[in-house]
């Protein structure tokens, strides 16, 4: 009996479903064709991440979006596993851009202050500090010069900071919860 009490079945309750969610999402660039997905599984079958993960299933993300399981989707760390290789986009028989859908969901997650991997905050701070997402070490500049490549353009840090302010990115990055690693 005690075992039965501890067991929490994974049930989708009707009140969790938001029938309007898919319409809202289908207005966003990249997620336009979400309604067309017929769950053939080609995306998961092709996905290089899925082959090494027990729970990252692009097909499932598409289904959850169709069902309107917004909260589950946005609080799911697995959303951040996609490497944006776009193989799923290339092979989907219905032309659904799964990678685009993932991007839309990630943006929404940050916008609504849900979750985001910590690394994004670091990348943002790199951008603000040096104008590049990755810190470019001095030796790299030298190497370029040796190879006869033109020097990298000098970033306008003031403008970058301004963009961060105007778009509200700074605030979002501050407020969103972060996590270090996707729990498996």
């Amino acid at each position: 009996m005690s075992e039965a009490q501890e067991y929490v079945p994974s049930v989708i309750k009707a009140e969790e479903l938001n029938p309007k969610f898919k319409y809202e999402m289908s207005k966003k660039h990249g997620a336009e064709k979400i309604m067309l997905c017929f769950q053939c599984g080609t995306c998961t079958a092709d996905c290089p991440i899925s082959r090494f993960s027990d729970f990252y299933r692009p097909r499932k993300i598409a289904r959850m979006m169709q069902l309107g399981l917004k909260d589950r989707l946005l609080s799911d760390e697995a959303l951040w596993l996609c490497s944006s290789c776009f193989t799923c986009v290339d092979h989907c028989p219905q032309g659904v851009e799964i990678a685009g859908i993932v991007r839309v969901l990630r943006n929404l997650s940050v916008k609504e202050n849900r979750i985001m991997p910590l690394v994004y905050r670091e990348l943002a701070s790199n951008l603000l500090k040096g104008g590049y997402v990755y810190e470019i070490v001095e030796s790299r500049h030298k190497k370029r010069a040796e190879l006869g490549l033109p020097p990298l353009p000098k970033p306008n840090l003031e403008e970058i900071a301004k963009i961060f302010e105007i778009t509200g990115s700074s605030k979002m990055l501050e407020n969103v919860k972060t996590f270090e690693k996707v729990k498996s």
Partner: peptide, 11 residues
């Protein structure tokens, strides 16, 4: 043959 068994959510 490599793919996803969509009813079981497994590859």
């Amino acid at each position: 043959l490599i793919g996803e068994n969509t009813l079981q959510n497994e590859l």
